[in-house]
């Protein structure tokens, strides 16, 4: 073996060992277990907290409202469509209050006249349909055809 190689071999060996040590510390745990990514990241993504409780979560305590909603045209809507995320409220109903969207513009999100909406959607001209009152002064939001006036 030529002497040049003899001196180089330990050097190469040292490089390889250094590389392996550095690699050990730089490549995170579980990387490459299933693919070119950190496998533990899947579990971390699963762990995140939920804010929406789901369609059936409200009926336990608000069965009257749930029954009302089911009985009329808004039956396709979920409570949280209007009241917003309710997970925290279901856990602490006394302290966490949900919003009650009573502005005309809120109903308008779905009902204002717009040629892009499909034909089945019942639309009104927001500026002309009883303009100086809130919608909920006449329509019960849970039972829109239960008119109050």
């Amino acid at each position: 073996m030529p002497p040049q190689l003899k001196t180089l071999i330990p050097l190469f060996g040292a490089f390889i060992v250094l590389f392996l040590i550095a690699r050990h510390f730089l490549v995170p745990v579980s990387f490459g277990e299933l693919g070119h990514y950190r496998f533990n990241s899947i579990a971390e993504n699963k762990e995140k907290a939920m804010n929406y409780a789901g369609k059936d979560a409200c009926a336990d305590c608000h069965d009257d409202k749930a029954a009302q909603l089911k009985s009329d045209v808004h039956s396709g809507l979920s409570c949280e469509t209007c009241h917003g995320p309710g997970q925290a409220h279901t856990e602490n109903p006394e302290t966490v209050k949900l919003n009650k969207p009573d502005q005309r513009s809120f109903c308008g999100n779905c009902h204002s006249m717009n040629a892009s909406r499909p034909k089945f959607m019942v639309q009104i001209e927001l500026k002309e349909h009883n303009p100086d009152k809130k919608c909920i002064e006449c329509h019960n939001p849970h039972q829109p055809w239960q008119l109050k006036e």
């Binding site: 993504n45 699963k46 762990e47 995140k48 907290a49 939920m50 804010n51 929406y52 789901g54 369609k55 808004h74 396709g76 809507l77 979920s78 949280e80 469509t81 995320p85 779905c110 959607m121």
Partner: peptide, 22 residues
């Protein structure tokens, strides 16, 4: 994330949850 934290617990995604017309 397709609400991965929800669907892996057997729930549906938040956007599906609130869609009024399915």
């Amino acid at each position: 994330t397709l609400c991965y934290h929800r669907i892996s617990k057997g729930k549906t995604t938040a956007c599906v949850e609130v869609c009024p017309t399915q």
